[in-house]
C-alpha cells in the first residue's frame, strides 16, 4: 500500500464502522474518529490487524502514522492549556486528507 501522507499533513480520522459497516477488531478508538489532526511521523508499514485478528495474513499491509491532535478539539470541555495534545497511531486506511 503506497504511503499517502507525510509529516505535517492535516488528516481526518474516518469512521469505517459507520461509513462502511466495518465490524470486529479495530484499532482506531472511537474518541478520535471524525477528528482532524496532523501527521507527526510515518511509523512504517504493518499488517492490518483487522484481518490478523481472525487468523488472516494482514495483507495488504498498511502504512501506520502517529497523528497529533489538540486536546481542546477532541474534548470540547477540556480544561487544560490549549497547547495540550495527544498522539494516536492510526493506519492509513482510516485516514483521509482533511478538508482545507
Amino acid at each position: 500500500m503506497a504511503v499517502r501522507f507525510t509529516t505535517g499533513d492535516r488528516v481526518t480520522v474516518r469512521d469505517l464502522e459507520a461509513e462502511e459497516g466495518l465490524r470486529g477488531h479495530m484499532r482506531a478508538p472511537v474518541y478520535c474518529r471524525g477528528m482532524t489532526g496532523e501527521i507527526e511521523r510515518l511509523c512504517g508499514t504493518f499488517g492490518n490487524p483487522e484481518t490478523l485478528a481472525y487468523g488472516g495474513d494482514g495483507q495488504p499491509a498498511q502504512p501506520l502514522y502517529r497523528v497529533r491532535f489538540q486536546q481542546s478539539q477532541l474534548w470540547p470541555d477540556y480544561t487544560g492549556p490549549t497547547r495540550d495534545s495527544i498522539e494516536i497511531e492510526v493506519y492509513q486506511h482510516w485516514l483521509k486528507a482533511a478538508q482545507p
Binding site: 469512521d15 464502522e17 459507520a18 472511537v30 474518529r33 471524525g34 477528528m35
Partner: peptide, 17 residues
C-alpha cells in the same frame, strides 16, 4: 468535527470514559 453517528462504543474502547 465528526459528521457520522457512532455505533455504541465497544466495552474495551474506554478512552475518554
Amino acid at each position: 468535527m465528526t459528521d457520522s453517528t457512532f455505533q455504541s462504543k465497544a466495552y474495551h474502547d474506554v478512552g475518554g470514559d
